[in-house]
């Protein structure tokens, strides 16, 4: 029917599956970027150019890097001995299978009434900018405040100051690099 769509979907779903199933956390994070990329391609296929590129910029460029940094900072790149899945994995699997069954059933039930084909919307980046600055200016401002708060919060939470700075004789370099070095040696 629509070969390109199925190819991209298989790409995205495969990436998501690999992200959840792979044992090595760094591999999982890299598979996650494949899923993000596939989803961005789906956005492009839905004529949402701006959202697609924003997706790549934010997720592949920032979130994936953040995840990778967090994995290395928490020694996550070593596969734990006791296994990667929790003891109650069966319940989790059952719940998510149930959720998928319900969602798919609902979509298939509604499929005949869903719109099949519409003309491609003639929306330019200019229109998006105008909408952001007029109709959606309040959400935009709130997002700005939220992002600032999140930035400060993340820094405060992650950069926990000890009462007395711990002294250690390591190679010179800021904290981040010091960690990497110690991890590896």
């Amino acid at each position: 029917m629509d070969f390109v769509f199925y190819l991209i979907s298989a790409f995205a779903v495969g990436g998501a599956l690999a992200a959840v199933l792979l044992k090595n956390l760094v591999h999982a994070a890299l598979a996650l970027t494949i899923a993000f990329f596939g989803l961005a391609l789906l956005f492009l296929r839905l004529d949402a150019q701006f959202a697609g590129f924003a997706q790549i910029l934010v997720y592949v460029g920032a979130v994936a890097i953040l995840v990778v940094f967090a994995i290395l900072l928490t020694k996550g790149s070593e596969v734990p001995k006791e296994g990667v899945f929790s003891k109650s994995w069966f319940a989790g699997l059952a719940i998510s299978a149930g959720v998928f069954a319900v969602l798919a059933w609902a979509v298939l039930q509604a499929a005949p009434s869903l719109p099949n084909e519409t003309a491609a919307p003639a929306v330019t980046v200019n229109d998006i900018g105008n909408a952001l600055m007029s109709r959606y200016v309040l959400p935009l401002e709130i997002i700005a405040v939220l992002l600032t708060a999140a930035l400060l919060g993340a820094v405060i939470v992650a950069m926990h100051e000890k009462a007395g700075p711990k002294q250690s004789a390591g190679a010179p370099g800021p904290s981040l690099l010091g960690t990497g070095e110690r991890r590896n040696s």
Binding site: L17, A35, L42, S86, A91, G92, V99, L103, L108, A111
Partner: peptide
Amino acid sequence: TPLAPYLIVAALIFAIGLAGALTRRN
């Protein structure tokens, strides 16, 4: 492509994400 396949793909990815969030230890 009609709308329904996109929704199915989204539901599938949502379920995979949910399974990951519920079953992984890390």
